[in-house]
Design a protein around this nucleic acid. Structure first.
Lengths: 209, 209
DNA sequence: AGTTAGTTCAAACGTTTGTTTGAAACATAC
DNA sequence: GTATGTTTCAAACAAACGTTTGAACTAACT
């Protein structure tokens, strides 16, 4: 076990505590205490509290979106001249996200909870960051999605995209409630099963007349 | 214009500021200032800050869930001996919620944003309150839903219910992003249109093979 | 008018907050 | 080994926080 750097230890602790207590609720003292780091180290490495939050986000989101685009391009390559099946487009969109949300070595549930909370945070800085990230992905996916759903009116197209994001975000962020509500029947730790279940649901909804 | 009571003014302001800044981020000083009320009035009327939050929630959630159940029972009555159509069950579930989320005289968007934030708040007290509210509704809806979806395995049933909640919550809580992302094509202020769109999507997803 | 219960008020309590400071400790180069 | 730039540290800062207090006000009933 290599000793992690001060910077990484701060990021790890921030992720946990921002997710648990909110970006406003988590105090730098709690963070530095958990990270076993001096209080002033935060300001030395990140400047201000909100810049620390940005760093926590960027660490996970940049690789995630790169992976989504890589996955879509792999499906496109495999399809050759034909258009990619809707199931595959959706899998490329939600699969990497859900796998990340279950990968505890990369923040996993904790990071997803944080993300879910930030989506509704009206802070302009956070919103710019999130919307920017999402639009990059959307730009890449929009053509493939429209090709797979040629019968959809533009209005329905965007609404259903919106509903898709909702289901995905809720499934990523809230992985334990389903176990409780289903009385143990559903197992959120079965990542690939969950993905398949979600893809089926979403494709059904997207194709609905 | 009748002057609202101190208690109501506190609830109104709390709703706005809890939604904007989170339950931890909103200070009692900001709330009482917006409500044009003395700081100590909060403790006089509600005791503690978290009891104030509970009161804000109860004011909207109790009538909402009553309305959902009333609506489902109306459909059941109309169906007589036959089982209620899936479209109607879903409408009874998401319709009242979405209408509330667009009714600015009853908190509207603001309250929904608050609700969305609280879903991911790990505070045990808040979770108990929310899960309790949801289970009351679920108990009432479960038979009708299962009857309308007889082919579904229990596991798929609960997962899809989970996805439904995600789409619904996201649509209620985040009403402006869709306008932005769709480039103005989608209008979240068209409440009934949104409901119909969402019901179609959800039924498609729920029925998917 | 006098009494009482309900409500509002300004002021203060002790904590905790994000941020700053300047010195100490560390590593790397010459 | 001394000098240089980077990182950590304990201590302090003003500001904001939730909560408490006791007196002042209001309205209703005797």
């Amino acid at each position: 076990m290599v000793k992690r750097s001060t910077k990484d230890r701060i990021l790890d602790a921030s992720e946990v505590l921002f997710a648990r207590d909110g970006s406003g609720g988590a105090s730098l003292r709690a963070i530095t205490q958990m990270a076993k780091v001096n209080l002033a180290a935060v300001h030395y490495h990140f400047g201000r509290k909100d810049l620390l939050l940005e760093a926590v986000l960027a660490r996970r989101l940049l690789p995630l979106n790169a992976e989504r685009i890589r996955s879509l391009e792999a499906y496109q390559q495999k399809a050759g001249r034909k258009k990619v099946r809707l199931e595959n487009v959706i899998e490329a969109m939600v699969g990497p996200a859900l796998r990340l949300s279950r990968d505890e070595t990369k923040g996993g549930r904790i990071f997803m909870r944080l993300l879910g909370r930030l989506v509704l945070e009206p802070d302009a800085r956070v919103q710019k960051l999130l919307t920017g990230q999402f639009e990059t992905v959307l730009k890449k996916f929009e053509p493939a999605l429209k090709a797979a759903l040629p019968h959809l009116e533009p209005q329905d197209f965007f609404w259903r995209l919106h509903f898709l994001v909702g289901s995905m975000a809720h499934t990523m962020a809230d992985s334990e409630r389903i176990r409780l509500i289903s009385g143990g029947i559903c197992d959120p730790d079965d990542t690939e099963g969950t993905i398949q279940c979600l893809v089926t649901f979403l494709c059904g909804g997207l194709r609905a007349k």
